Computed example of a mutant assay.
Amino acid sequence: MRYVNIDSVEPGQYLGRTIFSHNGTVLLNEGVQLTVSMISTLRRVGVTMLYIKDEADEAADMPELLSDETKLVVMKRMSETMNAIRSGKEFNTRAISVSVDQILEDVLRNKEVLVQLTDIRTRENEMFVHATNVAMMSALIGMNMQLNQIQLKELTIGALLHDIGKVEMIADDRSDDPKLHHTWRGFDLLKQKRELNLLIAHVAFQHHEQPDGQGVPRGLPDDQIHLYAKIVAVANTYDNLVYDPKTGARRLPHEACEMVSAMAGTKLDREAVIQFLRIISVYPNGTSVRLSTKETGVVVGQHRGLPGRPIVRVIRTDRQDDWEAKEIDLAKHPTVFIEQVLG
């Protein structure tokens, strides 16, 4: 399986990952053979990158932290929540709570799996994919930081709803009035929900605050920022780096990891960053790379304790219809390293 730009996709190739719509339904199923019309539609809805099945990499395993069933449920509940807020109605916190239970169940079952953000984004689903990714990563960081079950539930609900203030039309992050910032609007929305712990509202309120006191909306010092918000800030920052919701620009995971690392202790909480780097795949499966041996290949496996030392399948081609593959486990070859990420 390869992660490729849509401009290099050709009709007849097979989709490697299911694409979800914004309302919790399937847009295109994994394994479907792509046609000219499908590729054109994907471009139109804002897809720029997607996974393609490749004969040479057919055996490559890409374990998922969240099941497709959980993703569908979470995205549907988030869509219902956003629609309720837009129409001035009460949203169903019970449904959100049940969705978070499913996230935590999946994450606990697959906690040894490194995070690989494989969901394909469109203009309509990106807000929901972002919320799901931030919730998933925050839960894993929280587990690494030894939070108990109640704390993990509060953290993950806060992470899932951290950007809820963006739904209100009155929110305006460009305004000089801090109370119009989406963090403040999210706090106002969530603090009214008496069935939710007030700490959940503070996740929405504080996830753009920074340890150096230069964050927004209040410029809080480090000791006044709650741990939940510090964790969500790291997950939120990383996901926005690998996919900028404003421009659609992308940074490769290893580039985003380097940037997150550089923010530790100033823009982001140092301990939360340390735990984040232990759960993320620096070179996700499907990434095309060039090794220091000058061989090229595709990442096909990961090591929990060594996220920067994946397993790479190198393809040797003698003739167009004749290829031979070998796998190089970088954890077992300390003198070989990834020289460049291709494509």
Rank of each mutant, 00 (worst) to 15 (best):
V234A: 12
I225N: 00
R218N: 08
N197F: 05
K267T: 08
L227W: 07
V216E: 10
E255L: 06
L198I: 13
V260A: 05
A264R: 11
H254A: 10
L220R: 04
E258G: 12
D239Y: 03
Q224P: 08
H208E: 02
M263V: 08
D223R: 13
D212C: 05
D212Q: 03
R218T: 12
V234M: 10
V260S: 04
D222E: 08
L196E: 05
G213P: 07
T237N: 13
R218I: 11
L252K: 08
V242I: 15
P217F: 05
V242M: 11
E258T: 13
G265E: 10
R194Q: 14
A256N: 09
R218V: 12
G248E: 02
A264P: 12
M263R: 12
A262D: 11
Q214F: 07
T237L: 11
A204E: 02
P221E: 02
K230I: 10
E195R: 11
Y228D: 06
V242P: 07
A229H: 03
H207P: 01
V242T: 15
F205L: 15
H226K: 09
R251I: 04
R250M: 14
L196H: 06
E258K: 14
M259D: 08
A229R: 00
H254D: 10
Q214S: 13
N236R: 04
C257M: 15
I225V: 13
Q214E: 09
G265W: 07
G219H: 10
E195D: 15
P221G: 01
A262S: 15
P245Y: 08
N240W: 04
D244A: 11
H208D: 04
Y238I: 10
T247K: 06
Y228E: 05
H208T: 06
E255C: 03
C257V: 15
D223K: 12
G213R: 10
V234S: 09
D222M: 01
F205W: 08
H207W: 00
